[in-house]
Design a protein around this nucleic acid. Structure first.
Lengths: 130, 130
DNA sequence: AAAAAATTAATAATCATTCCTGTTTTTTAT
DNA sequence: ATAAAAAACAGGAATGATTATTAATTTTTT
């Protein structure tokens, strides 16, 4: 895969993800950055999101609304998805190391990592419903 | 959404999923069933997988290899994905109820359910590597 | 058994993502 | 600092999983 060179497009994508607490998808990232980089191309966004994910500098979130979302926070954490509004929040909750150990005996293999997704209704949506 | 009528196509899809321990994707389901139902159409497979998922009779697994996979086992369990061969195993491991409770205080909302994915290398792949 | 409703097959359309090509930027080596 | 080599880019075409459309068939209701 060789080493990654510098590019201002890649830097901008990483900066954007690290500065946001939400978890934008490729299209949102593209439209946002296009304002300041008018001839950024969508392919560049997709290619760099893939590269950064492979290098572990960002995390890809799947299974939310059908399209991939991206997270610039790489410290271990889970996600809470509101099934009402689709919002994805970080959940900083550390059951982490123990979870792999507990599951190990039930697995036909060696666990290296895990992802946890919580589904529910966020407080904002709960207010609206009542 | 009205009520679901009977259709032998839908029944065949559900039977197939409940009889298999792996987690086939739509294409595999389509090709398998086509052997005994030669004019089954792919659209029918996709439409019924979507319906059955919405009704909670099957579970959709995302984020494995880019395409959705389906699981006929609805009792609560997790999944182990081998990053080497792509195999997806069930993990019947019950930290379940407690996990929602533990995470609740870290969430801005009400947790209703969760999904856990474990990633690693299966025993078969471990052998091959060594 | 006929009418109404639901489902299907076949195929066209969609849309997120990847691939391709010629150009530009970044790095390396002089 | 400059030229050659490597990596990355923009723009657009291609891919591929999934969804939508429509006329025909099957299932349910009466």
């Amino acid at each position: 895969m060789s080493t990654l060179n510098y590019s201002k497009q890649r830097q901008a994508i990483l900066d954007l993800l690290q500065s946001r607490k939400d978890h934008p998808n490729a299209e949102v990232i593209y439209q946002t950055l296009r304002k300041s980089m008018p001839n950024l191309s969508a392919g560049t966004v997709y290619r760099n999101l893939k590269l950064l994910t492979e290098l572990g500098q960002i995390k890809k979130l799947t299974g939310l609304d059908g399209v991939d979302h991206f997270d610039g926070t790489i410290s271990p954490h889970s996600h809470f998805i509101c099934q009402c509004c689709g919002k994805v929040d970080d959940v900083f909750f550390e059951a982490d190391e123990s979870l792999n150990e507990k599951a190990a005996s039930h697995c036909d293999g060696e666990i290296q990592s895990h992802n946890v997704y919580f589904y529910g209704t966020c407080n904002e949506c709960l207010k609206t419903i009542k």
